[in-house]
Design a protein around this nucleic acid. Structure first.
Lengths: 343, 343
DNA sequence: CACGATTGTGATAGCGCTAACAAGTTGCTA
DNA sequence: TAGCAACTTGTTAGCGCTATCACAATCGTG
């Protein structure tokens, strides 16, 4: 087979391989491999000679060859509903930052809130033999779970700890968070409460928050909440649509719990514009504690979660598994109800 | 060498390889390879037999082996300053979505607004022999540019078209955008204008916007803008800090151009809280047209760019290069000044 | 009906690296 | 100083796949 070029480098430029470096340094290619992978196994003098050769030749190891020979990939697959939600983006960023320090790259899949798409993404990403998967939520297709089990790859699930994880989880309890909101609304005197969030079959985390809310209202002897389900993916402006639906279907509603701050903020700003007094006429509660939540007037009451901590923790859990911990305990992160002016 | 397992699959579970499939289907492994990679080269009957075997054995191709043998990786590297900015996240999402259709995965690096870190990330990512790089901005270290040139990988640069790209670019003119803002502010009667944005050495795109602003003010015979440089990474709340700095250093300022909507929004909301009338006492202009920009009161005047289009276009440019187009023309996306109530 | 052209499949030889073991070297103890 | 352990480096044999060429079977044409 003719020698091939890396990418489309100028013809004739042979690609520098490990044995080129070995030749130059006067050692075997195995020694070069050691200098790169386990430098402590090589004497300082040899190491220096090899490192000099690497520098002089601008040698760049070939990860594919390394993967094939070592049967391990230094890639982790992360599947989230969508990167265009600041919470998921923050989570993924923290995961990347955490894994980068160990030389591990992250490949992202966007499921668009569909478990079917998730299944397909998992299958495709499996071809790269990732060291592990970080998934969103605990609900997946049976085939997706089969694929993961068969491949034997460690899996960390995020954003939900309300049912049993496939392997282990780093998340929080959506039910408890929703319950806290319900208790607060009940305590402050709201009586006709509505929930606006992603459709249950698309977003089981939002569904958990609804369940918690409903439970709290029941405990407070209040009527069950009106539920408005929005089709995902949703935009910020959909908060206004949700508000309108609530007011149309139940004009006497005195509090709305939105499953995301983006929705709550757009609704709150719309209330300001319409002269609907918050929280006197309508209390509003969000979820996520977005940057602007504390800056609007009235400031938004919301539930703070820490997507970045979740991203870091899930990565650490995966690393623990890879370092031999067979069954690291799931991590339940604490959410925090932040009461501000809007409810 | 003993047979190894994929990940940590149950011991004894041999990994299914292409020749297992070949045996089962009664063909050579080369034929299996063809069914997967170039199905049109195989008769329908053989193809069906092979596909059945693939399904029955749950065969999943090994991408690393494929990469090594074919000397091509089906990975594209994307380097952005940070994923925790909604604009970059939207851009990356569009890139992923575009490339996914061609079976290409994306690996993300966060440079944290440092060209040095960018250089290091490029070097590391080069080990995966990506088919191409998508970078942010036109400013990189000399060594980073050397590395890219030597590797011969196609490069698409985004977010800036004000100087010559390394290879080709998909972006917009920050100078023109800043100029538009300056012209608007001058035309509406603002006289003492300030700019609040990321430090020039960290964010050359924001710097471009400042240059355009300054030029427009000069053309309108206005004094040069006061410039407040914020250290990156910045948080939404830094808009308030910027506002304070401006008012402290130049209390008579009557307009501020923020280099990002997140800053502008937090400053605008803070003005509302303090009773500083916008735009009568202080005009505010942002950049990016975030979701909430149109929802606050007064609605934020801003410059709309389209990060998602940029993400898609940059991916398409890369694909064009890979499909043989040696020098695809750079794409200059049009920005759009959106005048709302705040300026 | 022989001929080259066209098509489908197989055999062979690596891609660049690491695992596993072998071999050589040094230092220390008995 | 033999003998063994500890350490360093080299040798060998693949990892699972694709590129390339070789070959067989089929086709149309004069």
């Amino acid at each position: 087979m003719r020698r091939r070029r890396f990418g489309n480098a100028p013809a004739g430029t042979g690609v520098i391989t490990m044995s080129d470096v070995a030749n130059r340094a006067g050692v075997s290619s195995q020694t070069v491999s050691r200098v790169i992978g386990r430098p402590e196994m090589v004497t300082e003098e040899t190491r220096k000679r090899v490192n000099d050769a690497i520098r002089e030749l601008n040698y760049i190891p070939n990860e594919a060859a390394r993967n094939l020979a070592s049967n391990s990939s230094r890639v982790v697959a992360v599947v989230i509903p969508t990167l265009s939600s600041s919470a998921f983006a923050a989570q993924v960023k923290a995961t990347i930052d955490t894994l980068e320090m160990r030389g591990i790259s992250v490949i992202i899949g966007n499921s668009e809130y569909s478990v079917l798409r998730e299944e397909q993404i998992i299958q495709t990403l499996l071809e790269r033999r990732p060291m592990g998967f970080i998934l969103t939520g605990l609900h997946h297709t049976p085939r997706a779970m089969d694929l993961l089990r068969q491949s034997g790859v460690p899996v960390v699930e995020t954003w939900d700890t309300d049912t049993a994880p496939l392997d282990c989880a780093a998340g929080f309890s959506n039910i408890a968070a929703g319950h806290d909101v319900g208790s607060l609304l009940a305590a402050r005197g709201s009586r006709r409460i509505a929930f606006v969030g992603g459709a249950a079959h698309q977003d089981s985390r939002a569904n958990g928050r609804f369940i918690g809310l409903a439970k709290a209202l029941e405990e407070a002897d209040l009527p069950p909440p009106l539920r408005i389900e929005l089709v995902l993916p949703m935009s910020t402006q959909d908060g206004i649509g949700g508000l309108d639906q609530v007011l149309q279907r139940a004009p006497m509603t005195d509090a709305i719990f939105f499953s995301a701050d983006s929705l709550a903020l757009s609704a709150l700003l719309e209330c300001n514009r319409r002269g609907l007094r918050v929280p006197e006429q309508l209390a509003i509660c969000g979820f996520g504690d977005f940057d602007l939540a504390s800056l609007v007037t009235p400031a938004l009451t919301t539930v703070k979660i820490q997507p970045d901590v979740m991203g870091r923790t899930s990565a650490e859990l995966l690393l623990a598994r890879l370092d031999g911990d067979d069954k690291p305990a799931s991590v339940v992160l604490q959410h925090q109800l932040i009461r501000r002016g809007s409810a």
